[in-house]
Design a protein around this nucleic acid. Structure first.
Lengths: 228, 228
DNA sequence: TTATAAACATGATAATTGTCAGTTTTTGCT
DNA sequence: AGCAAAAACTGACAATTATCATGTTTATAA
């Protein structure tokens, strides 16, 4: 297996604030895992003995609501560290992490993280910055959820997907989500999402070939997202 | 003015992880402010030069949505530290803080906080725990917003108010919010909130005397919150 | 104390969104 | 390639929520 010291992914997350010695320790205790599409990395209520660093692929972080529907709170990709929050507060996981496509993740035992947190202020502050940023994003999601229509939220979701996961050579969104997953991201019924996506197609805002979706008229889509 | 070293409020927030010397420094640079009901402590987009520690009173943290409505993301009371997130990430404030009733807050300049963060891992980890906890709560709010009905959210809001702010000697909620504020907490139109609150009264779930509200049937209210 | 504004309330109606009950299309296997 | 299962789609309808218009009560300050 590769050594963390040489891992490029590190640049994208808080591990970059670790010293050489700390990284060596992480590298010695970590294990690498392949997770297939649809598999669960950890579930709501699980006690986590460490964190998962995403090397490749995408995971959805979701929570089951009392009415039986999943709400996807966040999509995590290359560089993201999953389970950090629960390890820090020493609570069980409050979200579950499921692979949206095939993934490669490194599991880093809790102790390696906690010891560095408690002794290396640079690392602690770096983690703090990341979590603070996540908190800001979460606050923004709260506002979107409560103040925007489903149509606006779906338009935003496509824009988000293009900006954060990019396009393939044919211009289609690199990350393909099922209609159900899109519905769970924006917090609506699957049928409602399907209907609105169909409308977008008819209006020429997006085009689709099978499951693949491409933004066809970004400007108009921006307008819809803003409530135009 | 009082000295932070003797301040009881400190017990409730991350400042308790500061050393005697650090507290002394904070105490020397801090200033105390009285904020009257309705006044703004800071607004969305403001550059913050420090954080505000709430000694007394309650502040609403809200964000203006593009459609012109305020969404209240959080209510902060005694012990809460406002503006922490923005200071840490060195971004402008993404929420505004407005006093819901008369308040007393201490302003602590940025440097005193950042220096301790960078040198005292105990303090950094303590702040980290607080923010991680806030993040968990924010995720829960996202799920509630998207998966629960307005009626459920209003029921939950009353329960939340009773559990977090308590009751006065007559059993009324100690924190009185306007109908508009309640609507902005649960993310609905003021009229919708008013209607549902009236229904609750008619059903005997709550009772009201002027603006004051009391939970009359907690069990039944719990049922409504769960979707019964 | 009284005028004046703000908050609260209610009705009527429209718009949005969810639910249920299907059909059709796509996908993943062996 | 062929078949079962999953995903995508559609229609009809019901429920929820927003909006607008307006009246009433309550708070606030000159």
């Amino acid at each position: 297996m590769g050594r963390c010291e040489n891992c490029i992914i590190r640049q994208f997350n808080s591990l970059r604030a670790m010293s050489k010695e700390e990284l060596k320790r992480v590298s010695d205790t970590k294990t690498t895992k392949l997770v297939k599409k649809g598999e669960t990395i950890f579930g709501e209520g699980d006690k986590l003995n460490g964190v998962y660093c995403v090397r490749d692929g995408v995971s959805k972080l979701s929570k089951l609501s009392p009415n039986g529907k999943d709400q996807i709170v966040k999509l995590a990709t290359q560089g993201a560290v999953l389970g950090q929050r629960s390890v820090i507060t020493e609570e069980v996981a409050n979200l579950s992490a499921i692979a949206v496509n095939d993934m490669e993740v490194c599991f880093i035992p809790k102790d390696a993280i906690m010891d560095s947190l408690n002794s290396n202020p640079n690392f602690a502050v770096e983690v703090l910055r990341h979590i603070a940023h996540d908190l800001k994003e979460a606050d923004d999601v709260i506002v979107n959820m409560s103040q925007k229509t489903v149509k606006q939220r779906i338009a935003e979701a496509f824009i988000y997907l293009e900006e954060n996961f990019g396009k393939d050579k044919n211009g289609y969104l690199a990350l393909t989500l099922s209609r159900e997953d899109i519905a769970n991201v924006v917090g609506t019924a699957t049928e409602s999402a399907i209907r609105i996506i169909s409308d977008f197609k008819k209006l020429g805002l997006i085009k689709a070939s099978g499951k693949k979706v491409a933004i066809a008229d970004r400007k108009a889509l921006d307008e819809v997202a803003k409530g135009g």
